[in-house]
């Protein structure tokens, strides 16, 4: 059941990304997908440690693991791409709205599918702090990536 729900969500998120008018180039989208995936994989090492480190007392179905992997490697990075593409639109209020909606989606997703996203229970405050750091990191890395192209033009 959980895998079916996750795959449907994946289909929705991927299609939202396909339909979205892109504010970033394909190179920037690929770069952001890679760095966001790597960051999420490292960030989940602590909350999902029972799954990662061969805990003999921990039982997890194959279906659950597949849902977790789909969330970790497809849904979260593509949600990041959606959000960062949308935040490129000019205007403070538009950007603030995108950031707030992104935070809400992130918190709701982590809470509703807790066992298959962050695996262990984490407080809303900690999740919010993580999201702020994660989102700032993605925007900063994107800026650095754009600088790499600009330095060549000079």
């Amino acid at each position: 059941m959980i895998l079916a729900v996750t795959l449907c969500l994946t289909w929705i998120v991927v299609n939202l990304f396909v339909m979205l008018p892109k504010k970033m180039s394909w190179e920037e989208n690929l770069f952001l997908f890679l760095v966001s995936s790597i960051t999420i994989m490292f960030a989940l090492l602590i909350p999902a440690k029972r799954m990662y480190f061969d805990d003999p007392g921990y039982k997890y179905s194959l279906e659950g693991t597949m849902a977790f992997l789909t969330n970790r490697n497809i849904i979260f990075p593509i949600l990041t791409l959606l959000s960062v593409n949308l935040i490129q639109y000019r205007g403070f209020w538009k950007q603030a709205l995108v950031a707030l909606v992104s935070l809400f989606v992130f918190l709701a997703f982590c809470r509703l599918e807790e066992k298959h996203t962050i695996v262990s229970s984490i407080s809303l405050l900690q999740l919010t702090v993580f999201f702020i750091f994660y989102y700032s990191l993605m925007l900063s890395l994107l800026k650095c990536f754009r600088l790499l192209a600009e330095e060549r033009k000079v």
Binding site: M51, Y58, Y60
Partner: peptide, 22 residues
Amino acid sequence: FTMLLIGGYISTFFDNTVCIHP
């Protein structure tokens, strides 16, 4: 830089997927 990231991503992805439970 993207190619370096692709190499790092592939390694991180498989080591954090094939190594985990179950």
